[in-house]
Nucleic acid binder design. Structure first.
Lengths: 196, 196
DNA sequence: TTAAAGTTTAACATTTTTGTCAAACAAAAA
DNA sequence: TTTTTGTTTGACAAAAATGTTAAACTTTAA
């Protein structure tokens, strides 16, 4: 069957990502998604067969996207610090668009540890660790297990975005004020990681 | 009706927290919770009337707990750094027990922004900001918007715990290795915050 | 020991969510 | 234009999740 491509399949998938990754409504129904997309719910089944299948696709593409972002930066030929600055720029831009992407992936792993196949990032992750280790060996970074450097970086970039509703409430912030703070964090994160 | 206190009500609530806060199964059903507690599902309705009511209680107690942890530390009479060291100890211990507590709260806020009453932490949060500001004014901390200091601290403590399934997969870690890393993070977090 | 009152259970009812199918519709090809 | 084929829709069916009730059970106190 040769498809006619009305864009509906993509629209549904994009809307699902919007609902899950951007709005953080992690237990949205297919009806919620169809409504948000402005299409008949049946189309979810027509294009994806089942809700699980849609979720699975969203999950895998979320994982692939994560993988790609890592790859894209890891293998560039820049000095480590610039490389990380680029990475933080790129990653924070995407995370501001889709703050709940990683949270969605984790929730899925926690709910359906069976359904999803494990991503093998060993090689990539090891390469990153080696680069971090080298910086430490050569005295440009505080010595510690390289995994902590990575954890620190991801934590400082993503967590405040996930916690947005709480920070807004506790600190009485408008959306604009919050966004401004997040933009400041690119530099702050970098400074923290490299000790200025 | 004078209650006989078989401990069942508490058991259900505790189990709900276990499932939501510890296992991160954010869309568990009442049946899931009843099974985990080893009780008949009907008891959820007997003691809590509805699933929503149970969720609401879990949410409010989660918020209260967060509030208490903040209070407990904010108003002690220690030098700022020691105060923060205590806080990190306390907070990380609880977060290792219940890594998804804040994620649950946020997801609830995103799903039912109406259902839950807003917590007013303004006073507490302002007091914390003032203390941070003072440290900056007196040159013991890098100058920045105090909210960033708080964000950095919470991020570095909590986010790696939430991402445990991913870190375990990417870095091929056992539970024991992961726990060891998390314990190391108490000191690392502190060092990062205070620039050693 | 028996009556009263709270607790637990199983069967049933309702609601919500998901899935299926045939008919209506729209676009491309014959 | 008509036919073909893929798309969309609404009605219906099935499954999953939640809620209700009456009866069984347990504990306490009369």
């Amino acid at each position: 069957m040769t498809t006619r491509d009305t864009g509906t399949e993509q629209l549904i998938k994009d809307t699902a990502k919007h609902v899950f990754f951007k709005e953080g409504r992690l237990h949205a129904t297919t009806q919620d998604i169809a409504d948000a997309a402005g299409v008949n719910r049946t189309l979810v089944n027509y294009y994806f067969r089942s809700k699980d299948a849609l979720i699975k696709q969203v999950y895998e593409e979320g994982m692939d996207d994560l993988d790609n972002r890592l790859t894209q930066v890891m293998y560039s030929n820049l000095p480590f610090r610039e490389k990380m600055e680029n990475f933080i720029d790129l990653f924070m831009a995407e995370s501001m668009e889709y703050p709940y992407q990683e949270a969605f992936l984790i929730t899925e792993m926690n709910m359906n540890s069976n359904l999803h196949h494990k991503a093998d990032m060993t090689e990539k992750v090891e390469y990153l660790s080696q680069q971090i280790q080298k910086e430490m060996d050569e005295g440009r970074l505080e010595k510690m297990n390289p995994i902590h450097f990575a954890m620190n970086m991801f934590s400082m970039m993503i967590y405040p975005l996930i916690m947005k509703p709480m920070y807004k409430q506790f600190y009485n912030l408008s959306d604009e004020e919050f966004t401004k703070l997040m933009l400041e964090r690119k530099e702050i994160t970098c400074k923290m990681l490299f000790g200025n």
